[in-house]
């Protein structure tokens, strides 16, 4: 490959958790590595780096995606929300609160991805029943296997958010 390819960096400009971020990155840098290594936002985890586990899930323009499969360069001009951006004024998001109450976490390594995925699952309208939640939360592996508690937490949060919006 050419030497120019190696030395190329891209200027990117995006919003992360509501804050504008500008950076100059190697094209090969994934959004996940950008968040973790450059911005020190280590909530999103690297469980597989192949889109097979969901621990790196973040919202891009409000949609949940595996940040290991997005280049930081591709995220330029987009809005990114990570688990660190969910709490407002120090108050936990209803999904975060429900995860604590339902004991929907153990080791915690998948939890950031689960919670972002759950926020999206509810927003998409896929929290209508336990069965629907189980299917639409299946992109987030949990080896401690909190699955029943995770489904319960998503349902609990969805009902509370519905009630708050009513």
């Amino acid at each position: 490959m050419s030497a120019s390819a190696r030395s190329q960096t891209i200027d990117i400009s995006l919003t992360v958790n509501g804050r504008p971020v500008q950076a100059s990155v190697e094209p090969r840098l994934s959004l996940l590595d950008f968040l973790r290594e450059e911005l020190d936002l280590t909530g999103a985890k690297k469980g597989c780096n192949r889109g097979e586990c969901g621990t790196c899930t973040v919202l891009v323009d409000g949609r949940r995606v595996n940040s290991c499969l997005v280049l930081a360069a591709s995220a330029s001009n987009h809005e990114v929300v990570t688990v660190e951006g969910l709490a407002k004024d120090g108050e936990l998001h209803p999904v975060q609160q429900a995860f604590i109450e339902a004991d929907a976490l153990q080791c915690g390594f998948c939890t950031s991805g689960q919670i972002i995925s759950a926020v999206a699952c509810i927003e998409e309208g896929h929290a209508g029943s336990t069965e629907e939640i189980r299917e639409w939360m299946s992109g987030n592996l949990c080896r401690c296997s909190c699955y029943p508690q995770i489904a319960e937490a998503v349902e609990m949060a969805a009902r509370r958010m519905e009630a708050d919006n009513a």
Binding site: G43, V83, F99, D103, T111
Partner: peptide
Amino acid sequence: VTRVDGPSKVRGEARYAGDQK
């Protein structure tokens, strides 16, 4: 009793070995 490490984990603030710098 809910977990004492629950809040830090749901906020993504809990630092694991690979999160250290």
